[in-house]
């Protein structure tokens, strides 16, 4: 079996099971940038992109994503190291505290501003509402996502 992650191909053993993608990423491929929080699809720490759609990798059977494009936090920045606008915005506003939820927050926000180029405050809250942050950076997250959308527009204009 093979997975396509961040435009690279990773062979993985076919155990004949439907183990979660998250387990494969973290424990088998050592791609530990994607985090585990609840293992139940509630907290959003494990969010990755599957064909551009933000997806809870702890609830995604690995055999359901064969042949699909998986993108994780490790593949979000450009190959030359230039940060994605969401990463840059989260740095600019000094959003993370402990940082554990941040891969999920950033992947959720990145997919969101791909589809919503000029988000309203309400749209931002709705988009980010299913990602827990126990350190309580919610207010900065809202500001940073708005800032990221601006950065992205500036970069593409």
């Amino acid at each position: 079996m093979e997975l396509t992650i961040n435009q690279k191909t990773y062979p993985i053993p076919d155990n004949g099971d439907s183990r979660p993608l998250l387990l494969v990423l973290r424990d088998e491929l050592n791609l530990t940038g994607t985090k585990i929080g609840c293992g139940a699809g509630i907290c959003g720490a494990c969010t990755v992109h599957i064909d551009g759609v933000p997806t809870r990798s702890c609830q995604t059977p690995v055999n359901s994503v064969l042949g699909k494009k998986i993108r994780t936090i490790e593949g979000l920045a450009d190959t030359d190291g230039t940060l994605h606008p969401v990463q840059q915005a989260f740095l600019d506003l000094q959003v993370p505290q402990c940082g554990w939820c941040m891969s999920g927050q950033i992947m959720t926000a990145a997919a969101f501003i791909d589809n919503t180029t000029t988000p309203t405050p309400e749209q931002i809250i709705t988009a980010m509402d299913k990602n827990y942050c126990r350190c309580g950076t919610y207010y900065r997250i809202r500001q940073a996502v708005a800032h990221a959308a601006t950065l992205k527009k500036e970069a593409t204009s």
């Binding site: 990463q87 740095l91 993370p96």
Partner: peptide, 8 residues
């Protein structure tokens, strides 16, 4: 923070 926004 730089390594916290890149998952490193």
């Amino acid at each position: 923070l730089p390594d916290k926004v890149t998952g490193k």
